[in-house]
């Protein structure tokens, strides 16, 4: 984790300005930090420790306790595959296998091109439309292995287009 480039710490200055003195704000600060960088860089956490006076051990302890936080960068598209009961009963395992088959990644991994990350998450609360996954805030429901693959392919195509026009 020491190999990463130094982070632009000015990105989290506003967050720290508003929260540094507010007790109990660590999770909120980390959420905002992750929103800024896509993950929690170690140097950013050290900076948070310095600004808030919270021991680094406490910060990393919180960051590793909650499933939402990541200590490594994620892909452009974060696939959150629901692991709820209804999704399980309706075959989320097959969806997981299909995603792995399509992208060659498993839970917690990112494709080498940095496009997709797969994360198994607790229930997304769309049980009646299970199995579901959420990608960058959009929920895809009543998935089949085929449908899941199609979603991924269209996102990859969309990204390629966007890349070309940009």
């Amino acid at each position: 984790m020491s190999k990463q480039k130094p982070s632009d710490l000015s990105l989290i200055e506003p967050v720290l300005d508003s929260y540094a003195e507010v007790p109990g704000s660590l999770i909120a600060i980390l959420q905002e930090t992750q929103a800024a960088y896509g993950y929690l860089p170690m140097d950013a956490m050290e900076y948070i420790a310095k600004r808030t006076g919270t021991p680094i051990a406490t910060i990393v302890g919180v960051a590793t306790f909650y499933a939402q936080f990541r200590l490594e960068p994620v892909g452009k598209y974060l696939i959150m595959l629901c692991q709820g009961t209804a999704c399980h009963v309706n075959g989320s395992e097959l969806i997981s296998a299909a995603i792995s088959d399509e992208l060659g990644i498993h839970d917690g991994e990112t494709t080498p091109d940095g496009l997709f990350s797969l994360e198994h998450v607790a229930c997304l609360g769309c049980c009646s439309l299970s199995p579901v996954m959420m990608i960058n805030g959009t929920t895809y429901s009543s998935l089949t292995p085929d449908k899941a693959k199609k979603v991924l392919r269209s996102l990859a195509a969309e990204s390629a287009e966007g890349g070309a026009s940009a």
Binding site: P55, I56, A57, T58, V60, G61, T64, F65
Partner: peptide, 24 residues
Amino acid sequence: GKTFLGLYNRGFSTVVNPMVPEEA
């Protein structure tokens, strides 16, 4: 009063670890 050590991760994979850079 140092809080140098901490718990990391959750559940069965919890460990006690000073998971911080060496200089710290």
